[in-house]
């Protein structure tokens, strides 16, 4: 999963810092920009291209209908509201993807945000995709450890170089080892190749 970025727009310093600190505690999520108002919102969205925007709808000028105040992001998919709005304007909250209430507990906010970030993982009760490397990946790892290039491996296994690269990416993600020498050590420790075969 790629790193997910957020912009948080909220005037209250206390509320903003609270939300920011919770988001930054979520794995792979981070706040790239904090805003006190929406003056620069559209240029900041262009600048940072965030995955999500957390916004207090009260920042939308009262004189304008919120429907006309254009935020260049999809409200119902990408924008989360912080609810401290007056009862008169509560109706507008339904157009947001999710609403964080001021009285929400830490766990509730975590749950809401996680559900948005990765609906599948949250639904399957946080079960993680297997970290075991597959037989195919083992074969490729063995060749990598023996010092073969991607191209050589592709030819040997009748795969496209692109496929080999994709496999290598998965191997690195699963094992937490990035370099060829590191992968070689793993291969020897797990008896995929012999010490003497190490170049």
């Amino acid at each position: 999963m790629e790193r997910l970025t957020f912009i948080v727009a909220e005037k209250s310093y206390l509320i903003r810092k609270g939300i920011v600190s919770i988001i930054n505690r979520i794995e792979k999520a981070s706040v790239v920009k904090e805003l006190e108002n929406l003056d620069q919102i559209n240029s900041e969205i262009l600048n940072y291209n965030p995955d999500f925007l957390v916004v207090n709808p009260n920042l939308i000028p009262k004189t304008e209908d919120y429907r006309n105040f254009e935020i260049k992001m999809n409200l119902s998919e990408k924008v989360i509201a912080i609810s401290s709005v007056s009862p008169l304007r509560r109706g507008m909250l339904s157009s947001f993807r999710e609403v964080i209430e001021l009285h929400d507990s830490k766990e509730e906010i975590f749950r809401k945000l996680k559900l948005i970030i990765d609906p599948e993982i949250s639904q399957s009760n946080g079960s993680i995709i297997s970290a075991e490397i597959s037989e195919r990946e083992k074969t490729i790892l063995t060749h990598v450890a023996k010092g073969l290039t991607n191209k050589e491996i592709a030819e040997k296994l009748f795969l496209s170089a692109h496929t080999v690269i994709a496999h290598r990416k998965n191997i690195t993600n699963k094992l937490g080892i990035k370099t060829i020498s590191g992968l070689t050590i793993y291969a020897v420790l797990n008896n995929l190749i012999k010490m003497e075969e190490v170049r």
Partner: peptide
């Protein structure tokens, strides 16, 4: 930093 990262993981996860 890559090799450093690997070395940590090898010791933490894989070394007997």
């Amino acid at each position: 930093e890559e090799k450093l990262y690997d070395l940590k993981n090898i010791i933490i996860k894989y070394l007997p």
